[in-house]
Write a protein that binds this DNA or RNA. Structure first.
Lengths: 344, 344
DNA sequence: TTTAGCACTCAAACAAAGAGAGTGCTAAAA
DNA sequence: TTTTAGCACTCTCTTTGTTTGAGTGCTAAA
């Protein structure tokens, strides 16, 4: 596949750069002039013609300049783009910001989404870190009234779930305290399956609460508190490809329909991997909704303990260099934060 | 102000209806034809002319039909609109949906936003119920490692806050349990100020934790967990007035800049009140960002216990009838849910 | 292999011409 | 006095044709 000459690679790079900059088709003249090439526009035209033949460029219409195809972007990202890093000062600043927030996952996610959006100048999304299998750390029961109690479960990852439970007979706070202490002792470190296995051996209030607990843990496993943090949508809507209301609406659809996002994010297999960063261009053919979109995603966290995904999404014509470096850096930072805070 | 003749009122009503339906200026001919009026278009023209003089209608340009002014909408909403209710079956269905969710405020908010968006066909927003003053119900400390612990505070409204605290010396779970029980006993039902007053009399670990607790309670008071739930943005972007990317972007701005929303929502004084429902048309002159928007808001909850705000926002040309009835009904439902679940 | 030159193409910008929706005014009818 | 038919007028929107210019591909010379 990589039968491109050096000059073709160079020209492809220029076309991609220029198109990302200007959002318009790139012509041979313009390229020669803007980049002071010491070859003529006719030569550039010949090379462009070859690149078109190879499927890396296309013409919106006969007398227009060239635009990169999805394939062209893919080639650019995997072979031509020089692998940048965020500047030292920026990295310092961001790192500082993170260490200054209070120790709160919610804050981190928000901050990560915000920084990511600003650095990449497209839209960002961050999922909360989620353990592969929820394990109980602590159970707490608080009496509310009569037969109702507030059940709070803390998992080893640090996630907190709450739910109101109803038991068969009225209970006092003491009874609840005792039960919660006993169950915490029994089940600490255990997952839904193990709790369920034990459950049969319990009686009375303990058994009732344990049933609720199993229910809760199962729910926690099933993606549970998987909030998605979004930011920078305005960046994307400002891009010319979304100026038509049709595309703008479609963009919004993506964001309001969380299931679609989940589907996409959970499908984070490493294909185009660059240090864990995955680039999906034009929906990779599979995702029809995303034909106009690209995403740069990376997993973060501590495998086995808790992992999440973060990334950016924008038009195919996206500043991949900046996006990739921002995503990689923030995946690193968040991994660090999660690891630091969640180590037992 | 109300010197309109019956016929003028009738025509204003028709213009508003027709404009809301068609999004286009409304002409005299069209009105006569579409609504089978038994007066001539010339008469309608005369009346329209009068309404324009009075400031209730305006012409986008000389040879165009009429469009309601903000003043026209206001008159319509407060004098002409017949006060509808959601159909019985719909009310039943919604109510059923709420009672079927698990007892979880988060779910309710989400559901309320979703139902509101669907019923009104514009965008909806719901703030979580928030007590005027947070009062501690229960304090829980969970050891994580070394000098760190997870502090969980449950307030009387049922809100849960978590935060990681660091104390001066290493602690065990027992020490933490004892401290949390003692402090829960001491401060249950108390607010930030009362806890602060007592704090001086404590020593050692208790004092340290109490200091963190005060901090947390103060934060809880300050709007704290005030998430805003949004839904139905796609409805709004589908409207023709937001087809230009400029307006679409502005719409997005409103939604990403939560502070602006907070500002607006917390300013829910009752002016145009209809059974607690407040209608803000075209930003009411004051909010420049909202010149193209209208909002229908209502407070809900139990004053003294916990209150929140919910409502819809959309273009000025909004189906006020449906919006108002939906907002009123859902404010009722949510009040009920909150009251039922939070009574001590 | 590169490049100058040139004919050709096609979208976008512009201008002129109509069509159509709607108005306001006047004078007649009710 | 109020309503209405009639009509001239206004202004946007659409259509149609024209021009412009960026950009191409091809050919033939360097």
């Amino acid at each position: 596949m990589s039968e491109l000459t050096d000059r073709q690679k160079f020209i492809l790079t220029l076309v991609v750069h220029e198109h990302i900059r200007s959002a318009a088709p790139v012509g041979s003249d313009l390229l020669v002039k803007n980049y002071q090439l010491d070859i003529s526009s006719a030569t550039v035209r010949n090379e462009m013609s070859a690149l078109t033949e190879l499927g890396y460029l296309r013409q919106p219409h006969t007398s227009a300049g060239r635009v990169p195809t999805e394939e062209g972007y893919r080639y650019f990202v995997s072979h031509l783009m020089r692998d940048t890093e965020l500047p030292e000062t920026t990295r310092r600043m961001i790192s500082h910001q993170f260490h200054q927030t209070r120790n709160d996952a919610d804050e981190w996610m928000r901050l990560a989404a915000s920084v990511l959006a600003r650095q990449s100048s497209v839209a960002s999304l961050v999922t909360a870190p989620h353990p592969d299998k929820a394990r109980l750390k602590h159970l707490e029961l608080i009496s509310t009234r009569g037969r109702q109690a507030l059940m709070i479960t803390v998992t080893i990852g640090g996630e907190i779930h709450q739910r109101i439970v109803t038991v068969n007979d009225p209970v006092t706070q003491e009874m609840l305290t005792i039960t919660s202490q006993r169950l915490t002792g029994l089940f600490s470190g255990k997952g839904a399956d193990e709790i369920q296995a034990w459950q049969a051996q319990l009686q009375g209030l303990d058994a009732e609460i344990a049933a609720w607990l199993v229910d809760e843990m199962i729910e926690a496993d099933a993606l549970g508190s998987g909030d998605i943090y979004l930011d920078g949508l305005k960046n994307v809507l400002a891009e010319p490809e979304f100026s038509g209301s049709e595309e703008a609406r479609r963009a919004l659809r993506l964001l309001e329909e969380r299931p679609l996002l989940y589907d996409l994010l959970s499908n984070t297999k490493v294909s185009n991997g660059i240090g864990g960063v995955q680039v999906l261009i034009g929906g990779e053919g599979a995702w029809d909704e995303f034909r106009q979109w690209s995403m740069v995603l990376a997993p973060y966290g501590q495998p086995g303990l808790a992992t999440g995904t973060l990334g950016v999404m924008g038009p195919i014509r996206m500043p991949y260099g900046r996006a990739i470096s921002a995503v990689r850096f923030l995946a690193g930072i968040l991994s660090e934060m999660v690891t630091e805070s969640l180590e037992e």
